[in-house]
Amino acid sequence: MPLSKELIEQKLNEKFSGESFVFTEHRNELTVSLDKKNIAALCKYLKEEDQLAFKLCEDITAIDWAKRKNRFTVVYHIFSIKQNFRLTLKADVDESDCNIDSVSSVWKTANWHERETFDMYGIHFNNHPDLRRMYMPEEFEYHPLRKDFPLMGIPGSLSLPKNKN
């Protein structure tokens, strides 16, 4: 049976009864918005349920909405090779409580994606095995993809080598 919006909706509501999922579609792409406390359990279910089999985690990132109440949205793109179906998961994270459960125990590949998101947005991933900066030097204090970080950076935040001659 090919995967469709209805089937996923039905399966998720069966498994996680009492939780509210919001299903949206834009340009034929299905997106599920959920509460951040469910993310690890839901990802585990989506991966291990035989009919869904979302075995490939393509990407994890975040969006900074700047002035919104829930400032960040963490976005997961997962793909089911078996069903040839792509699904987007979204969970809101507020700045005052800037953390979300890690899914690196579900997909190994999530490790680096979450590190990158931490580096760029400063969102903390709980239970992550190795949460370090991905790109920027460890001494760097800021999170560059936040909207309040200027494009040209903050002068003096990154060092240049000293000229010896």
Binding site: M120, M134, Y135, M136, P137, P144, L145, L151
Partner: peptide
């Protein structure tokens, strides 16, 4: 260890 060629593409794209 990565990041020696991090050029900030995503930030550039937003601008």
């Amino acid at each position: 260890e990565l990041g020696y060629l991090h050029r900030g593409y995503e930030k550039l794209a937003e601008n």
